[in-house]
Design a protein around this nucleic acid. Sequence first.
DNA 1: GCTGACGTACTTGTATGGTAGCCGACACCT
DNA 2: AGGTGTCGGCTACCATACAAGTACGTCAGC
Lengths: 233, 233
Amino acid sequence: MANTRQQVHEQLRARIIRLDLEPGSALSENDLAAELGVSRTPVRESLILLGDEGLVDVYPQLGTFVSRIRPADVASAQFVREALECAALRDAVGRASPRDLTDLRRLLRAQGDAAEDADMDGFFRLDEDFHARLMAVGGHASAWPVVAQAKAQLDRARRLSLPLTQQLPLLIGQHTAVVDLLEAADPAAAEESLREHLRLVFSDVEKIRRRHPELFSEDGETPRPRRKPVARP
Amino acid sequence: MANTRQQVHEQLRARIIRLDLEPGSALSENDLAAELGVSRTPVRESLILLGDEGLVDVYPQLGTFVSRIRPADVASAQFVREALECAALRDAVGRASPRDLTDLRRLLRAQGDAAEDADMDGFFRLDEDFHARLMAVGGHASAWPVVAQAKAQLDRARRLSLPLTQQLPLLIGQHTAVVDLLEAADPAAAEESLREHLRLVFSDVEKIRRRHPELFSEDGETPRPRRKPVARP
DNA sequence: GCTGACGTACTTGTATGGTAGCCGACACCT
DNA sequence: AGGTGTCGGCTACCATACAAGTACGTCAGC
């Protein structure tokens, strides 16, 4: 990719979602530009886009900060994701070709392998591929970016919940159930199964919130972050 | 609002949706900066955001153009809007307070007045208010921006269909039906009524496509637009 | 008349300089 | 001691300069 801005944007986005950049930490245009070996311009433009996605908060003349996870945003993202994926699945039932089904089942097997190897990054990618493919089967691949943007808010917290590795087989089982019901052409049951699966992710986020409250924004908190104090002589 | 970028962004966005800036026309950073009396930077940053929304297409080293309406994008936007608004309406049934219902009915009356006065801009605003309020009643006000972004693709074409003014009472009637069924707490009928309403808008876009094909991107069209010829001496 | 090379004018992309505003630290006054 | 004014350093914002690239108009050559 020739475009510096896109490179910076993708890299920062990945780092934020991986929690490599911690919620609440400051992001200075100057520091990032120096660290990445580019000028401030593409960094700044990337931060503007990330602000639009809700992944960073920009306070003019004060600083840019990795946004803390806002419970209201999580609920909103979950609503968007659930509504879109379930609607797409309803359209997918009856439209799935044999090729679609074999591809989906291949993804399921790959997820099983990744779970056995404890390959978290691989499992995450395959999970994303699975859900994207499901929407594509319904003829709504072009709506996936909307889901992906909403998902970003959830994935930051989910990444922490996976060390509870014993859940992986459960997730794969739910995926399998969705595919089975899709093949059986039972729209209502398929949708309910998918909804249950997505809601499980939601409750995971709530668990993480209790275990890592520092990643979330308290309700009564002042929205204005503090600048880091200078070193005293 | 002190922020120049936001001002430029909102103004350009409004102009594009109003079709004041015609699909396919070139937008030069320099020209816009001169016209608006600001430098290239805020203009450029606005164009990046508009590109992210799908309202302009940026071709590096070639130019930036108001995007033609892509039928695939219209279908995608319609899917997103329908899924989200219908899901929100399902949640709204049974939650609507008397205050919600009176506010909604006040909006309906205002729409009737705007229709009588042939106040198109006013009717558009009230239509937007109505749908936003409907989602708020379901507790999903924060998901409205997602709908609004999808709606932008539809509204560009809709603006042309409204001179068929005789449709306005039909739209208001459908709005009224939704509120009636919401008050009657009939989720299935309310959802079906809203879906029919949204689909009508969708079919309007198709009508406009036949009457104004120049606003839409042909399927076999080369994606690379031509640069405007220079004046000869 | 037709074809192909080339120059020019335009575009967006990137880098850098200067400005207004905010916060924290600290001396000073009450 | 508690409040207040000022100063310094930092920030994002905006303006501007430079670089890389594309397409069109021109014109030489056939």
